[in-house]
Amino acid sequence: MTVDGEVRSETDPPTAPAPVPAPVPAPVSRATVLAYAAVAVLLASWVLFGWLVQQQGFVTSLGEGLGAAFTLLLIVSVVGSVRQHRRD
């Protein structure tokens, strides 16, 4: 017998559980998209400033910009985790 009270024979294939639908993510606000675009422009400007104005090497300027980008991503991730934890 199964959990539902149905009688199954040994030759019946096992039934797969019904798939659980994935939650639909909330749409991204226009302010968030604009903030991401502004940060991208600022980071690109920072790389160009270091490369062209300060006469650093291109690789050094690019590394500095990528380091700043990863730091911002880490901050956004931590803030998002804290906000999600407080909601739950």
Rank of each mutant, 00 (worst) to 15 (best):
L43W: 05
L74Q: 04
G63N: 13
V20H: 04
V47N: 09
S77L: 11
L34D: 10
S61E: 12
L66E: 09
F70Q: 11
V76F: 08
M1Q: 14
T15S: 07
V3Q: 03
G50K: 01
A38I: 10
V3A: 10
G50N: 11
S45H: 11
T2K: 11
A44K: 08
V41S: 04
S81I: 02
F70C: 01
L42W: 01
W51D: 00
P13C: 04
V3P: 02
P14H: 03
V24Y: 02
A31I: 05
Q54L: 15
G67Q: 08
F70K: 09
R87Q: 12
T60I: 05
L43Q: 10
R86S: 04
P27C: 09
V59Y: 15
P19F: 07
V78T: 06
S45W: 12
V3C: 07
A69V: 03
L72F: 00
S81W: 07
V7F: 10
L73T: 02
Q56E: 14
A44M: 07
I75M: 11
L73Y: 04
A37N: 02
E64A: 11
R30P: 15
V79A: 12
A16V: 06
S29A: 11
A68I: 03
G65R: 00
G50P: 01
F58A: 06
S29K: 06
G57C: 04
A40W: 03
L72Q: 12
R30L: 07
V82H: 00
A44L: 15
S45I: 00
L34R: 14
L74E: 09
V33R: 05
L66W: 12
A69F: 10
S45M: 04
V82N: 00
L74H: 01
A40H: 08
L73W: 13
R86W: 08
W51Q: 07
A18W: 02
V76T: 05
L34S: 10
P13V: 00
F70V: 12
A40Q: 10
L42E: 01
T32K: 05
Q54E: 15
A16M: 07
L48K: 05
R8I: 08
V59P: 03
S45Q: 11
A18F: 07
P14M: 13
A26W: 00
G57T: 12
V3K: 14
V53I: 15
V76W: 11
G57M: 01
V7L: 13
G67P: 02
S61W: 01
D12E: 14
S77H: 11
G5P: 08
R86T: 10
G5C: 00
S81C: 04
D12Q: 13
A18T: 09
R30N: 07
S29T: 08
Q54R: 12
A22W: 09
A40E: 07
H85F: 06
T60L: 09
S9F: 06
P21I: 01
G50R: 06
M1I: 07
W46S: 10
G67C: 08
P25H: 02
P17N: 15
V78E: 09
R8H: 02
S29G: 14
P25Q: 03
L48P: 10
V33C: 10
V3G: 13
V3H: 05
A31D: 13
T60N: 14
T60W: 03
F49V: 08
F70I: 03
A68L: 08
D4R: 13
L42N: 08
D12H: 09
L43V: 13
R83E: 13
P27E: 12
L42V: 13
T2C: 05
L43K: 15
V59F: 14
A38L: 10
